[in-house]
């Protein structure tokens, strides 16, 4: 008889869909690659469509399977199919700390995202923290018109794991 394969449970792990969104070139794919593969590349390759991958994290002793959807740049409705966001339990909104244009529309974007996934968890993340010094950091954060949850660097890996852990905690609480 031919051998067949189907999923066997190891515990009671929950699966959640999480979307990475934000403007072009803010480092969504770099955060995705740093988190999934522990890799970073200086080359900029624009994401075509969407890329899906999975990582299991442990939150307070519970395994949580995060299905990450890395969506090609832009947040607006006319550029990205709304259906990509459907069924998402969490959204990571990424902006680039060195490019004010990437956080100028943050309020409007978050409002739009909240309307798509009502009740979902949205985390606002300032990426490329390795490119700014302490003094600039304070100044830039005063310009961001929204509360920033965490600052990360996909390049050095700073706060990347913490960012997903923070999201994971909110997802299962």
């Amino acid at each position: 008889m031919q051998e067949t394969k189907y999923n066997i449970s190891q515990g009671n792990m929950i699966s959640k869909k999480v979307i990475l969104t934000g403007s072009f070139g803010v480092g969504k794919t770099s955060l995705f690659n740093q988190f999934i593969y522990n890799k970073f590349s200086d080359k900029y390759l624009t994401t075509i469509g969407v890329k899906v991958n999975k990582k299991v994290i442990n939150v307070d002793g519970n395994d949580l399977s995060l299905l990450l959807w890395d969506i090609a740049g832009e947040v607006s409705q006319d550029k990205v199919p709304t259906s990509y966001f459907l069924g998402a339990s969490g959204i990571i909104y990424v902006f680039d700390l060195t490019r004010p244009a990437t956080f100028r529309n943050i309020e409007k974007d978050i409002q739009y995202l909240n309307s798509i996934i009502s009740g979902g968890v949205i985390k606002v993340v300032g990426n490329k923290v390795d490119l700014i010094d302490l003094q600039n950091k304070e100044e830039i954060l005063t310009q961001v018109p929204y509360d920033v949850d965490i600052l990360t660097s996909a390049k050095t890996g700073e706060n990347v794991e913490d960012m997903f852990s923070l999201l994971g905690k909110n997802l299962i609480s």
Binding site: Q2, T4, Y6, S15, K17, V52, L67, L86, G87
Partner: peptide, 22 residues
């Protein structure tokens, strides 16, 4: 909507089924 996997079965071992579903 979410693309999350309820379950899967296959005749051979292949890529991560969660990712395929997504």
């Amino acid at each position: 909507n979410s693309g999350l996997l309820f379950g899967s079965a296959s005749k051979s071992v292949n890529l991560d089924q969660d990712v395929i579903a997504g």
